[in-house]
């Protein structure tokens, strides 16, 4: 069963996405910030995909608008093949481009995230 990590400090968002992904048959863990997310990735080493918020507690715990981009970069450096999707409240093409350049496989805006599951299924089945 593919395993997904959701990193988001908004508990209700993390829980809602977790429920959707659990129903779709994935194993799902959640983390409320970069430190905990990084710890989870290092502890288990067997995640197949990461779903990252942007504005959340960064490394060191201080909330930062682009904390998720830092984590994306670190993930991409350490595990270049681990797919990362962004799920952010920002409807911001500049951040979307930045995320694409740092290796994100997609950028989703909260509220318009209806095709996240489809994207995840496509990526984990070997597609785009």
């Amino acid at each position: 069963m593919p395993k997904i990590l959701i990193v988001d400090d908004e508990a209700i968002v993390a829980r809602s996405m977790q429920k959707t992904l659990l129903r779709a048959g994935y194993a799902v863990e959640t983390a409320p910030g970069c430190d905990q997310g990084w710890q989870a990735l290092n502890d288990s080493q067997d995640f197949d995909l990461v779903l990252l918020d942007l504005n959340m507690p960064g490394f060191g715990g201080t909330p930062a608008e682009d904390a998720g981009l830092d984590m994306l970069e670190r993930i991409h450096e350490t595990w270049p093949d681990l797919p990362v999707l962004i799920l952010s409240a920002y409807d911001d093409p500049t951040r979307a481009s930045e995320a694409a350049n740092r290796g994100a496989r997609g950028f989703n805006v909260k509220g318009r995230e209806q095709n996240v599951l489809e994207q995840i299924q496509s990526i984990l089945s070997g597609g785009q």
């Binding site: 409807d91 911001d92 093409p93 979307a96 481009s97 694409a100 350049n101 496989r105 997609g106 950028f107 989703n108 805006v109 785009q128």
Partner: peptide, 18 residues
Amino acid sequence: APSVDAVNYFSQNGINHV
């Protein structure tokens, strides 16, 4: 006026420069 959806669309089609 680039949009997030457009950036996603082009990036998923192999064009990263918007």
